[in-house]
Amino acid sequence: MHERYKVLKVIGSGSYGIVYLCKDLKSQENRVVKQLRPSKRRHRKEVELFKSEIALLHTLNHKKMPKLYETFSTDGYFFYVMSFINGDNLEDLIFYSKKTFNEQESLLILHQLLGLVDYLHTKNIYHQDLRIPNILLKNNELFLIDFGLSQQQILSAPSQLSSGSLQNNQEDTQEMKQQDYYDLGEILLYLLYTTYPSKNKKALPWTEELSLMKETVYLLKRLLQIKEPYSSVREISTDLHAALRANEREH
């Protein structure tokens, strides 16, 4: 592959792309190489989406997210190269290693994740695929990967937009923001269920199955839009800290 990268194994495969763990023969370091799936390369829209993903990664400069190194094409096939983060994804930790997270640990994971989401949102980037397979843990530090579905809002000056276009832009931004917040709620709920003994044959709502501090319940209900949805990371952070303080007092 490009004569510089030796494929070690396939580490991800979807309808859109194939992800390889490779050895960089020049630096002797491991890298991740993503390829646009060959069946997609003749579709202009798919190629443009792949290029958009590259452009988005190019704007990232965060030690807890992948770093873009280079792009190349060989015989009409499209690739890009990024840093390899040697961590365990949350999905594998929960399902294969049977790792559990109590209420406080779950809230602390959310705290780290919220910081990464805040970084993205200040750059008008919305991840849109916050799920446990896309979160890595390494020495209790959290890393965020897979920006294949991410969207970056290119904001035009209000004077250049009609009132209708401006309103549509704001609505789109709010929708993407809310999707990320909702996904944070789903992740928190997932983590909280790792300590739940599923002996009850009758499926009950999480509000009845889980014994949580009222501050955590309130946080979850707003993230999951059961109560008034959050409008900013700052709002979430305020309630998250209240839930953490409540847990510290309890223990």
Rank of each mutant, 00 (worst) to 15 (best):
S97K: 15
L219M: 01
Q160K: 07
V81S: 05
L110S: 12
N140S: 15
Y182N: 01
I125H: 02
L192P: 00
G12V: 13
V217H: 03
L25I: 08
K9C: 11
T59C: 05
Y16T: 07
F84R: 04
S73L: 02
F50D: 08
L204V: 14
F78K: 07
Q112D: 12
S27R: 14
L166D: 09
K177L: 01
L36P: 05
Y69I: 05
G148Y: 02
R234V: 09
K26D: 05
V217N: 02
M1N: 04
S73N: 05
C22L: 06
S27M: 14
S232Y: 02
K138H: 15
L220Q: 00
F143T: 09
E3A: 09
D172W: 09
E208Q: 15
A242K: 06
D92N: 14
V19Q: 08
H241T: 06
P66F: 07
G148N: 04
F78T: 04
V81E: 02
E91H: 15
Q128A: 13
S15F: 03
K6G: 03
R245S: 15
L136S: 07
L142T: 09
E186D: 03
H62K: 14
G164F: 11
L188R: 00
Y96Q: 12
Y16K: 08
R245E: 14
Y218P: 00
Q178E: 11
A55C: 13
K64M: 11
R44G: 14
L219P: 00
S52I: 01
C22E: 01
N140Q: 14
L155G: 03
N169E: 05
E70I: 14
Q151R: 10
M1K: 04
V217L: 06
P229G: 12
T238L: 12
L144W: 05
G17K: 05
L49T: 10
K99F: 06
K45S: 13
N134L: 14
Y126K: 09
K123F: 10
T195D: 00
S198N: 04
A243W: 01
G17P: 01
K45E: 15
Y5E: 07
L223A: 09
S156P: 01
E175H: 13
L240T: 06
K9P: 06
R234S: 11
S150P: 12
S232K: 06
T59H: 08
K64R: 15
L136K: 04
D180W: 02
E105I: 15
G115Q: 10
S39D: 11
I154N: 11
I94Y: 03
L107P: 10
E208R: 12
L220G: 00
L224H: 02
K201V: 10
T71D: 02
I109A: 11
S163H: 11
A55N: 15
S162T: 13
L224F: 02
L184Q: 00
S27Q: 09
N139Q: 14
V233Y: 09
L224W: 03
L244P: 10
K199S: 11
T207H: 00
R245K: 15
Y193C: 03
V47H: 00
Y230R: 03
A157R: 12
L21T: 09
W206S: 00
L155W: 12
S237V: 07
P229R: 06
S39H: 05
L93V: 12
L21P: 00
K9V: 08
L25Q: 06
L130S: 10
S162Y: 03
I132W: 04
H127F: 09
E48H: 04
D239P: 05
E228Y: 05
K199D: 09
T100S: 10
V7Y: 02
L8R: 14
